[in-house]
Amino acid sequence: MHDLILHHYPMSPFAEKARLMLGHKGLVWHSVHIPAVMPKPDVVALTGGYRKTPLLQIGADIYCDTALIADVLEHREPEPPLFPAHARGLSRTVAQWADSSLFWASMGYTLSPKGAAAMFASRPAGEGQAFASDRAAMRQNMTLLRPADATSAYRSYLRRLASMLDDQPFLLGEVPCIADFAAYHPLWFTRTLNPGLASILDATPDVLEWMDRLAAIGHGRSERLSSADALGIAHAATPEPIGPDVSFQDDHGIALGSLVSIAAEAFGTETSEGLLRAATRTRYTIERQDERAGTVHVHFPRVGYVLREVRA
């Protein structure tokens, strides 16, 4: 069984979600630090174009998006579960809301002009502008909340989270689940990366106590690995075979083996191209070749991603 390799950078909120899920499972993993902004040549060598953070690498299999990473970790180590038996559908639904509506309200507040100026005040000259330009490119054609509207939404969402914590330590019960990790990371970004704006959390002390409980879980045990070594591991490995019993859900009229592109629906819409090797109920898998990474399988969740056939 290949080791778990997380490609991430410390200030990434979605990476914090993945790190906490690894800690929740008590897993050992390798940590590869990647750039926060483009260019990301080693990331693109693995994915073919997808550049969002984090990625989970297992040998020559590359898993994109924390929604899919959660499923992979659950399969790898079922206990303790990320998806509680009594609320599997609810936990996924809350997580999807947190990764979208809550996340963008948090970002609109935390990275408002005032917030961004505070966050990058002590960083090297030009870093803030480079970050802003990079994220603007990733948000092309997205409709964003204005800072005042984001602030209002963020306050409302925090109150909703607080009401879920009225009589229980975690959002859906006595133990944390995917809903908690998804709701936590946008708030972590505000509290940890821009503490000057963290006072918005003070009106919901139950939420702050819940955040402390989640932070105490930690990130498991990790060891640093260079990006070059991770590419070498991919090159030396063979993607896990897709068994004949894996069902094919054809919603597009695109045959397996076709050259396709896959991209996120909205944020970070860079495409990855490859041969379609699987399209199950929950994920797509493409096979691609790279001089440095070798033959890899890149996996995406169905929800939130667009599949298209590439015609000559």
Rank of each mutant, 00 (worst) to 15 (best):
K114H: 15
I5G: 10
A137V: 03
F103T: 07
A15Y: 08
G274H: 10
H185S: 00
R224T: 15
R302V: 11
A264I: 02
A228M: 11
D3P: 03
L144Q: 14
G108Y: 02
R213K: 01
Y63L: 09
V296Q: 01
V310I: 02
F248Y: 11
D202F: 05
T47R: 04
S152V: 12
V260P: 03
P39S: 00
T110N: 12
P78E: 06
S152P: 13
Y50M: 06
R19D: 09
V32C: 03
P124A: 04
K17E: 11
N194G: 01
A216G: 09
E127R: 06
L231Q: 00
A312S: 14
D65S: 01
T192F: 14
D245W: 13
A179H: 01
T285V: 15
R135M: 03
M21L: 03
A312F: 10
P39G: 10
P10R: 00
R88W: 10
V44K: 11
D99R: 06
A60N: 05
S133E: 15
M138A: 12
R288K: 05
E223M: 02
G253E: 01
L4T: 01
R160C: 14
Q249W: 15
M211P: 05
L6H: 00
G108T: 07
T93K: 06
P176H: 06
G89T: 12
F14E: 02
M138I: 05
N141A: 14
Y184E: 09
G294M: 03
G126H: 06
A150L: 06
P10M: 02
K40Q: 11
L259Q: 11
W29A: 10
A279K: 04
L111N: 01
A237D: 05
G48K: 05
L27K: 01
T110I: 12
W104Q: 04
D229S: 11
E79D: 13
P301V: 06
I233H: 02
A136L: 11
A182E: 06
D71G: 10
G294H: 08
E209S: 15
P39I: 13
E265I: 03
R221T: 15
R123V: 09
R159E: 01
H8C: 05
V72F: 05
Q249C: 15
G196F: 08
G115R: 02
P10W: 03
S163L: 08
Y305C: 10
P41V: 06
R288D: 09
L214H: 12
D229E: 12
I217L: 02
A130M: 09
K40S: 11
V44S: 11
L214I: 14
V44W: 11
L90Y: 07
V246G: 02
E77F: 12
A162F: 00
E74T: 11
L55F: 11
R88Y: 13
A198W: 00
A136H: 08
D65M: 00
M38H: 14
F103D: 04
D180T: 07
A15P: 06
M21P: 07
L187K: 11
G220D: 04
L68R: 07
M138Y: 11
R277Q: 13
L158V: 08
A183T: 12
G274F: 00
S122A: 14
R146E: 15
T93I: 13
